[in-house]
Amino acid sequence: MGNACSDGCFGMLGSKKVSQLRACKQDLKKFIDGKNCHPIMVRLAWHDSGTYDQRIKNFPERGGANGAIRFAGEMNFGANAGLDKAKGFLDEFAKKYPEISWADLIQLASAVAIECAGGPAIDMKYGRVAVTSDSECVKSGSREGFSGNAGLPDAKPPFGCGAPTAAQHLRNVFTKKMGFTDQEIVALSGAHTIGRAFKERSGACPFGYGEQGASKYTKSDCLARKDGQKGVGMVGGAAWTKNWLTFDNSYFKDYKLASEDENLLWFPTDEALHTDPEFKKYFDIYAKDQDAFFKDYAKAHKKLSELGAKFEPEQGIKI
């Protein structure tokens, strides 16, 4: 596809977009660090990209990173419960930086969140075209085999795609539908290190909103940030790791703790990554080598952020 554009290659309009992307990135760093909203920014971007179906060729019918998550046609899926809050966080950025499409803004915020939490810098490119109305959201008929959960993986059986095992379910969603390899599936799953679940959203865990609903690791006085400072953003829910605002390899390294501690999450789809022979190869590597995890994660995140996207210019924009 060639090298992505930089400032001088597509005129004054492109240069303005690059300038706004750079300024927005700095503003997002301050905002995300102050709000401690890293997990929900990653989730918003993943769920926007996660509608992608490689079996469908045309844009925007194929889904993917096109900003459709901001419309009711996507937001109203049960799997997307709570993401209206993340969209609300970005509304002011969209107003301040009108040259940045919603599709780019959502993916930029996700990459910034990973980096702010101590994770790798993602070699992102921009210029994604955003859909402009609810009518351009992926239709239910385009979610063949995955319609019940917005085309995203289920945490527990019975799996919407009909898979008999968690490992097969992950491959149905990530490989058959989206085009990821086993290695990329495992690497992407490592982002659970900064993830949380809430009873009121997914129903997949017993911990919910607020101090009373929190696990012992998600209360207001917990120290979860990489820098050890106070602040957890929204209180409550349960996480996969103790330090769930720190992006590292603890999802892999400390899996035994997660599987044994009732205050931490560990679902059948997590267990599959450690028990399926092909998944386990990569799981074990990432448990021992954080650098290897970061390298592979950055590549997989970049791929996820471009699924189904239409770029203008076609080769994208680097900042």
Rank of each mutant, 00 (worst) to 15 (best):
K95H: 09
K25M: 13
S140P: 01
V129M: 12
V112G: 04
C137R: 00
R128L: 08
T132E: 14
S142N: 15
F59T: 06
W102I: 02
D123L: 07
K125E: 06
A86R: 01
I32W: 10
K95L: 15
Y52L: 06
I100C: 06
G151R: 05
F146K: 03
G34Q: 10
L28T: 02
G148N: 13
E74G: 00
L105T: 03
A113T: 05
E136Y: 08
G78N: 12
G119Y: 06
V112H: 01
K30L: 12
M41S: 04
K139W: 02
F31P: 02
S142H: 15
G67T: 09
L44M: 13
F31A: 08
R70K: 15
G73N: 09
N80P: 01
G82P: 12
F31M: 11
S135N: 11
G118D: 08
K85L: 13
A45P: 07
G63I: 03
N66W: 03
D84I: 03
D33P: 00
S140T: 14
D123P: 05
R62G: 04
G63K: 03
L28M: 13
A130S: 15
H38M: 11
L44T: 05
A79Y: 05
R70W: 00
G145I: 11
S101D: 09
P60Y: 03
C37A: 15
I69M: 13
K96I: 02
A86C: 03
A81T: 13
E92N: 08
D84G: 13
D104K: 02
I40R: 10
L152A: 01
A155F: 14
S140F: 10
I56E: 07
G82Q: 13
G78M: 09
N149G: 05
A65Q: 06
F31W: 11
E144S: 14
I100V: 14
D104Y: 08
G151C: 07
K87Y: 12
N149D: 04
A113Q: 02
S135H: 11
E99A: 14
S49M: 10
D134M: 01
W102G: 01
K96R: 15
R43G: 01
I114N: 00
K87F: 09
L105C: 02
A121I: 12
H38I: 01
E115W: 01
D134H: 08
F31R: 05
K95Q: 14
A117G: 10
F71N: 04
V138D: 00
V131N: 04
I106T: 12
